[in-house]
Amino acid sequence: MAYSDKVIDHYTNPRNIGTLDKSSESVGTGLVGAPECGDVMRLQIQVSDEGVIEDAKFKTFGCGSAIASSSLATEWLKGKSVDEALEIDNMEIVEELALPPVKIHCSVLAEDAIKAAINDYRVKKGLEPLEAEKSIH
């Protein structure tokens, strides 16, 4: 299967690989997927007092499309407010990376990772976790 140029670019030069201090009050961590499914994403956000995502990091175990989806997600998250970040839809990732149908689950996983990281941050701040929207995958 041929990968799009953008997937190859993110795979070859992934943005924002790394780890943030998950015990920090201002860091939200989302860990989604499962090793037996061949995809695990960990996405972390660091949020300022004003509620702006200052930094985002990821590590992903998965195929090129999974790596590219999470890399792209961290790029988009930086500078957004938490509320804006919640608006990111997996289909935007599919479009941007030109993912084929068999790889749509990679984008779904990236969206799940964003939501999981935000929820982790919300819980730390004493807020209610958001009801997870049931994605079909």
Binding site: P14, I17, T19, L31, V32, G33, A34, P35, E36, V40, M41, R42, F58, K59, T60, F61, I67, D112
Partner: peptide, 20 residues
């Protein structure tokens, strides 16, 4: 860039994690 490798290096048993 693998979160599993990082966990392995930290001595975390991957089987102890509740995966989604």
């Amino acid at each position: 860039m693998s979160p599993l490798w990082e966990m392995f290096k930290e001595g975390i048993d991957l089987k102890s994690i509740e995966w989604t």
